[in-house]
Computed example of a mutant assay.
Amino acid sequence: MTTARDIMTPGVECAAAQESIVEAAVKLTELGVGSLPICGSDNRLKGVITDRDIVVKVLGAGKDPAATTAGELAQGEAVTIGADDDVDEVFATMKSHQVRRLPVIDGHTLVGMVSLADVARSLPSPQVGDLLEALSSG
Rank of each mutant, 00 (worst) to 15 (best):
V87G: 02
V48C: 04
L102C: 06
A66W: 10
A24C: 02
S96W: 01
V90W: 03
I38W: 01
A134F: 00
L59G: 03
L131I: 07
G112L: 05
A61W: 08
L131H: 03
A15N: 01
L73A: 11
Q75F: 13
K27S: 02
K63E: 11
L36M: 01
D88C: 12
L132C: 09
E89L: 13
E30R: 09
A70I: 04
V56G: 09
V58F: 02
P37L: 04
I21L: 08
C39F: 01
L45H: 10
G34R: 02
I7H: 12
M1V: 07
V55K: 09
Q98G: 11
G71I: 05
G40C: 10
T50E: 06
R44E: 11
A67N: 02
G32F: 04
D88T: 12
A134L: 01
L73K: 07
V22F: 02
K63M: 08
D51S: 03
C14H: 07
R121I: 07
H97D: 01
S122F: 15
V12W: 01
D106R: 14
D53A: 14
S20Q: 07
F91H: 07
D130L: 12
E13H: 10
E72S: 08
G107D: 07
A24L: 02
G60T: 10
K63S: 11
I105A: 04
T93H: 05
H97T: 01
V56H: 12
E133R: 08
L45D: 06
A66E: 15
D51Y: 03
M1Y: 12
F91Y: 03
V104G: 11
V79G: 02
V12N: 15
G47Y: 06
L123S: 04
D42S: 12
E77T: 08
S35I: 00
A4Q: 14
V48F: 04
V119E: 00
T80D: 12
A70Y: 00
E72D: 08
T29K: 07
G34D: 00
T9E: 14
I54W: 05
D42F: 08
T68C: 08
E89G: 04
E133M: 06
P126K: 05
L31M: 12
T9I: 13
E30F: 02
G32T: 03
D130R: 14
A74N: 09
H108M: 08
L135Q: 04
G40S: 11
P103N: 13
V114T: 01
S125A: 14
P37G: 09
